[in-house]
Design a protein around this nucleic acid. Sequence first.
DNA 1: TCGTTATTGGACTGTTGCGTCCAATCCTCA
DNA 2: TGAGGATTGGACGCAACAGTCCAATAACGA
Lengths: 209, 209
Amino acid sequence: MDCQVQNEYDGGMPTTKGLATRERILDAAVGVLIHNGREALNLDGILASTRTSKSQLFHYFPGGKRELIHAATQRQVQRIAGELTAPLDTLDAWRTWVERTIRLHRTQTQEDACEVAAMAARVLDPEPEDRAVLGDTMQSWNRHFAAGIRAMQRSGELRAGADAGALAALFSAVLQGGAVLDKAVGRLDYLEPALRVALAHVEGFAASE
Amino acid sequence: MDCQVQNEYDGGMPTTKGLATRERILDAAVGVLIHNGREALNLDGILASTRTSKSQLFHYFPGGKRELIHAATQRQVQRIAGELTAPLDTLDAWRTWVERTIRLHRTQTQEDACEVAAMAARVLDPEPEDRAVLGDTMQSWNRHFAAGIRAMQRSGELRAGADAGALAALFSAVLQGGAVLDKAVGRLDYLEPALRVALAHVEGFAASE
DNA sequence: TCGTTATTGGACTGTTGCGTCCAATCCTCA
DNA sequence: TGAGGATTGGACGCAACAGTCCAATAACGA
């Protein structure tokens, strides 16, 4: 079977300088994806904002626009996933995570660059492969939530009766929906209260001391 | 001050036949917006699928693509808003609403036409006016949720301690996020469980009989 | 220093798609 | 039936944009 060209550059050995150029292009693409969405991304714009030329872009991304967006998508989810994935095996860890998420969201919203909302904006992306990258990231968050809940049940901090899968789905949905809503209405009205209520619900399952 | 051209047709009195043509075009546009998103909407495609011509489209939508998308957006939110807005002033009404929403979501997902997810996909829409239409709809759902909670508090069905605004935000976020996630992962894994957990949380505030 | 390879600029082509325009046809009503 | 307005078809112009190509320069190793 023939392999699709992956994200790794393959035409000759790039030098440090070359990689830096590639990097600049990629960063610009990620920026556009987060701020204005895929629809707004056009190569000439990227070239202008990075002061590079067509030949450079196609040198480092032979697959053109598709490959650039694909690589940018992967970089994007990689960064945000690291940011939002912390250990969640105690209630205190959950509280910390909630506060941290709210802070991060506030910061990103200030500069109009909410990455979670930007991911949601692409559920109808024409490229199935890119949709999959985004969806997989969301799913891995969900698994992480569920694993945290189950860990707390094993440790006895949470009652066994709680449905770990459902609670994880709740958090996943609240995270996504809260980000989308705050972006849609242009204010920080949803994610924070919804996340706190969700946390309170989980705390309701705490084993009585 | 000069008024922007609104959504109402203004060039001459349209006949029944003319309005029908306008309607066909509009329906096709809504369909594309829901199924494939704004990025995929192009006039030639609309014309082909409705067997109409350029002159017809620009006759009924003198503002061209912008006006068409704007009108289609309004029609879209109007329809879905009616679908999801039921009285919510008793716990039983909430239960009914949850079941109905889940059913509707299941149906729409089957035909790959989840309208809530389609709305979320447009948080980065280049047209601020259209973003506003979508955001306003989400906000009006939220107000409706909050009003329902407060009504139950007034009637004594729910304890006064519950934070109506936060509970409404929870439902808004779960609705949005659940729809987005199900669309993103291509399965019905999120909205239903998350909605049920959210409902259970509200039920936890029921005044003891 | 010299040859090889990476890097760069930018002109050029082809396509897509929005919007304009004009002429032809249909409908209605007097 | 004839006039006037509504409706329709489709050719055309124009701009945006993806992608190709070639030649020029820079970097690097022998």
